[in-house]
Simulated assay, not measured.
Amino acid sequence: MEIEINHKPLTLPDGATVADALAAFGARPPFAVALNGQFVARAQHPARMLNPGDRLDIVHPVAGG
């Protein structure tokens, strides 16, 4: 199935989860994740199933002042 992570296409097997997508993308903590615009708690990553066309946004914290 095709999904999008941070505006980049990614092909995953059917039945993939948010955790699978993050691993395939190479995401490194710390980060927050939104699935189709809705925050997904870290504890839900392994159980949250993806569907074709889903959009994941990975946001890394930025420090500054």
Score class of each variant (00 low, 15 high):
Glu2Tyr: 08
Glu2Cys: 10
Ile3Lys: 06
Ile5Gly: 06
Ile5Trp: 02
Ile5Met: 09
His7Phe: 13
Lys8Pro: 01
Lys8Tyr: 08
Thr11Gly: 11
Leu12Tyr: 08
Pro13Phe: 09
Asp14Trp: 04
Asp14Cys: 01
Gly15Lys: 02
Ala16Asn: 12
Ala16His: 03
Ala16Ile: 07
Val18Asp: 13
Ala19Asn: 00
Asp20Tyr: 00
Ala21Asp: 01
Ala23Val: 07
Gly26His: 06
Ala27Lys: 02
Ala27His: 13
Arg28Met: 13
Arg28Leu: 15
Pro29Tyr: 00
Pro30Gln: 14
Phe31Ser: 14
Ala32Met: 02
Val33Met: 12
Ala34Thr: 05
Leu35Ser: 04
Leu35Pro: 06
Leu35Val: 07
Gly37Glu: 08
Gly37Trp: 06
Gln38Trp: 07
Phe39Ser: 04
Ala41Met: 11
Ala41Trp: 09
Arg42Gln: 13
Ala43Leu: 07
Ala43Cys: 00
Ala43Ser: 10
Ala43Pro: 09
His45Asn: 15
His45Asp: 09
His45Cys: 04
Pro46Tyr: 12
Ala47Cys: 14
Arg48Met: 10
Arg48Leu: 00
Leu50His: 15
Pro52Tyr: 05
Pro52Glu: 04
Arg55Gly: 14
Leu56Phe: 06
Leu56Val: 05
Leu56Tyr: 04
Leu56Trp: 03
Leu56Met: 08
Leu56Glu: 03
Asp57Cys: 14
Ile58His: 09
Ile58Trp: 15
Ile58Val: 12
Val59Pro: 00
Val59Glu: 11
Val59Asp: 05
His60Asp: 11
His60Arg: 03
His60Cys: 05
His60Lys: 11
Pro61Arg: 11
Val62His: 00
Ala63Lys: 10
Gly64Ala: 12
Gly64Gln: 13
Gly65Cys: 06
Gly65Gln: 06
Gly65Asp: 02
